[in-house]
Design a protein around this nucleic acid. Structure first.
Lengths: 201, 201
DNA sequence: TTCGTTGTTGACCACTTTGGTCATAAATAG
DNA sequence: CTATTTATGACCAAAGTGGTCAACAACGAA
């Protein structure tokens, strides 16, 4: 289906994918301009249509591709067995940060797809079995060793605070022009240690 | 200058302002469509141009208006003298939530203005003395009673965690179709109490 | 009622941008 | 060298652009 595109080298593919996602994220399917995509991607208009056929197929390709990226990433942090919530959450951030470094808009894009209004693609987005990424993510909170927490603490609120703080560290780093992965990981580690002091026995 | 618009009733003005901000936030000045604005605002094209003259003036009006809203809001929470950091931050959220309930995109819009690329408006945005809203916000961390915190705690990290968690509560509430202000305020209060337990002596 | 003023409308304009094509050319393979 | 695969951008009809304006509605004053 998309052999013409898949065969390109990874860097070029990534560049095109990110350009296209950026454009679809602002304003949804209808308002996305293929002209803008080719400019941002630094390729000719002919090439884009050579790779993907038309706008709709590009959109659907991106959707499938992103879901796959997200699922793979989720499995990467589910494989990492760890009942210490703080360590587990640090690992989640680690995985997410490396995914978002390459594809900063994956989550924004699939979210946009799932409440896309345009009749032209809504139907086929529905058909492509929505893998329950939310459900996958909710497992982060399952089988946690609650005995690590200090007595009397609101564990739900504690978990929410940890998640919010660590994700905020990551998001602030993403705003910077250059996403410094090592820097983020160091800060998240500091954050984990901070919460170990304040939340754990 | 904008008497024609200012004289409308508040609800209608708010509706138009939000429709226009939404459109400018996606894709910046050049890509914003006045047709989309009038559709979203539920008014005729003639009316929009009757109120604002042209696209550029609408844009600049929004910028000035938003800066004013933000400054006023900042003063609302700076007036509230309080050296207890947690109470102060709760108050900041309280003020921000009520502003964002009415104008969910104020911050996104002025941020967009400040790195707007279009030659057509960049110059005049620069001229309009940029009130240093960031500097105002940084005062939130000044003159805090640090003795309230437990010994040995990383106060910077603690403050960052509190801010991240409280703002996350607010942002998640904003994603909902209906922004339930009371609900948010209750959750933020719970959050403050949680941090009082874990961070304060 | 009639008149003048103010507010609102959407068809309309010249111009740009749209998604998509295709003849041509560059690159690569055999 | 030829044959096939990639890449290009001028080009197209159709849709959308910011902005105008003659017509009309709503209003109070006379």
């Amino acid at each position: 289906m998309f052999q013409k595109f898949e065969v390109l080298d990874e860097a070029k593919k990534k560049h095109i994918i990110n350009a296209a996602m950026t454009e679809f994220v602002r304003g949804g399917y209808e308002k996305a301009s293929m002209n803008t995509v080719v400019e941002a991607a630094g390729i000719s208009k002919g090439s884009l249509f050579y790779y993907f056929g038309n706008k709709k197929q590009l959109y659907l390709y991106l959707f499938e591709n992103c879901e796959e990226l997200i699922i793979d990433n989720a499995h990467r942090h589910l494989d990492h067995k760890e009942s210490d919530f703080l360590k587990r959450m640090e690992h989640v951030i680690r995985c997410n940060a490396s995914l978002l470094k390459d594809y900063p808009l994956v989550y924004a894009f699939v979210k946009g797809c799932k409440n896309e209004k345009s009749e032209k693609v809504r139907h086929e987005i529905g058909k492509l079995k929505i893998k329950h990424t939310e459900e996958l993510f909710s497992r982060v909170y399952k089988d946690i060793d609650e005995s690590l927490f200090k007595e009397g603490i609101d564990i739900r609120m504690a978990q929410f605070a940890v998640k919010s703080t660590m994700f905020q560290i990551m998001h602030e780093a993403m705003q910077q022009s250059e996403f410094e992965l090592d820097n983020v990981l160091k800060k998240v580690e500091d954050c984990r240690r901070f919460f170990e002091m304040t939340l754990y026995k």
